[in-house]
Nucleic acid binder design. Structure first.
Lengths: 242, 242
DNA sequence: TCGCCAAACTGGTCTATACCAGATGAGCGA
DNA sequence: TCGCTCATCTGGTATAGACCAGTTTGGCGA
């Protein structure tokens, strides 16, 4: 707050490094998905060490301005994807309409029994049969989320035989005449830990947004429960009501 | 993935420290709002240095399990507050109904002109008069958010004279007969930077959730635009549709 | 008894260095 | 030309210190 003898002012060094990099990004000198200079180079060019430089980079990462790709380097984050979790929607259509390129990979399809925590979320009974679908979704080649989807096989018989690399919503509508009617959405920011972090190719502890969604059909029958794990810098939630 | 000669396994040391602390929290050995041992003590008791210990603490912080109070120590995070941004609601009532104690402080009330970015969000014209209200809100004595509220003085004449330490929604309803009708909500995880970080008493770069809300009345007239800056570990968003 | 002050303690910032592990690319050999 | 190997690059993890700047607390003095 007060003036210091130190000509640099009282701002910590790592925040000054942060500011310089942020300015370069904002000025357009560093375009989206551009690689930053390596930590060693940045450290030397700012007259400091890697430890301090990494503090500055971690700040920018927390703000969602840059992201890291394991042992490959730091990159400038592209704009956030606008996402409305209350709508039935096709990820693919949504991404495409924003001028980006989507991709979906099905990681796993299994039939298991409802665990207690899931019973609590879905209203099903513990031990009921449930179809579990695990997918990873990318935007412009970067994985941005993994999701676990739990489908009610009573309402959706034979669902496990279909191709899940397309829009699930369209599948439900066309093959099972499901019009999703009510949704209960919960979400909070947290760090991504291991099965999810690994699937997204990021370090455990990377900031994320956890989104869950429970949907039922027009008759009030439970249809599906979603768990989505997003990288925190990749999305902006948008909801409209009434 | 493969077995190592190292008896500790291949997990990095800071993640093993993290796990030990997380287990103690989950086992209930460390209750909500309890202070953890100091970094120096933790470092010694785990046979490592402060740098590594701080990595472990930063992980737990990112997950929302612990939080820091500037130069006072690390504390166990209490449960997240459940919050529905689509509802007209009283913060005070909401917090109280979850068995917690709320507090609100009005930091600033000013009348200014609509800036371009705000015009873009509200639909007002650049240069129009607008009332700006800045508040800080606490739960159990911990500040959890700061908010900037922009109120339309055309729809709410004399609004700047009221007491803002109570529910704004009730004020609008009782004094101006406003029934908020439509809302457009946007939110994304990001780091809290300086005016907000300082108001909340946290370091710049602390993880947060940025929430904006635009409301109009039954006639479609713009009433208010909110910007809320939450600490990321303090809330869980819950939305219900149709 | 009360209030103030100083010591002790806390996290915050920073240097300097080391080695590990995955990603990459140049160049060699078939 | 194609495929593989290996040196070199990257970030990831870790040690061992140092000093700074707020917070807390215990004890002293009025």
């Amino acid at each position: 707050m007060e003036a210091r003898a130190n000509g640099e002012g009282s701002t910590p060094l790592y925040l000054r490094v942060r500011d310089q990099l942020a300015n370069q990004i904002e000025a357009g000198l560093l375009a989206a998905n551009t690689r930053l200079p390596s930590e060693r180079v940045l450290a030397e060019s700012h007259g400091t060490t890697r430890v301090t430089t990494r503090l500055a980079l971690a700040q920018l990462e927390a703000e969602g301005r840059i992201y890291r790709s394991n042992r490959r380097g730091w990159f400038v984050s592209p704009p956030r994807l606008v996402y409305n979790p209350t709508q039935d929607y096709s990820f693919s259509d949504n991404v495409t309409s924003q001028g980006r390129t989507p991709a979906t990979e099905t990681l796993e399809v299994t039939t298991t029994e409802v665990a207690p925590w899931l019973a609590n979320k879905t209203g099903l009974a513990v031990g009921d049969a449930i179809v579990r679908l695990r997918r990873r979704r990318q935007v412009d080649g970067r994985p941005v989320l993994v999701e676990n989807i739990y489908l009610n096989p009573k309402r959706l018989p034979g669902i496990e035989q279909y191709d899940f690399n397309r829009s699930l919503w369209k599948l439900l509508r066309e093959k099972f005449s499901v019009e999703l009617q009510g949704k209960r959405i919960e979400m909070f920011p947290t760090a991504l830990v291991d099965p999810q972090a690994e699937a997204l190719g990021v370090n455990a502890g990377t900031a994320g947004l956890y989104v869950t969604r429970r949907s039922h059909d027009a008759d009030g029958v439970f249809v599906e429960f979603d768990e989505e794990f997003w990288l925190h810098d990749t999305l902006s939630i948008q909801v409209e009501v009434q």
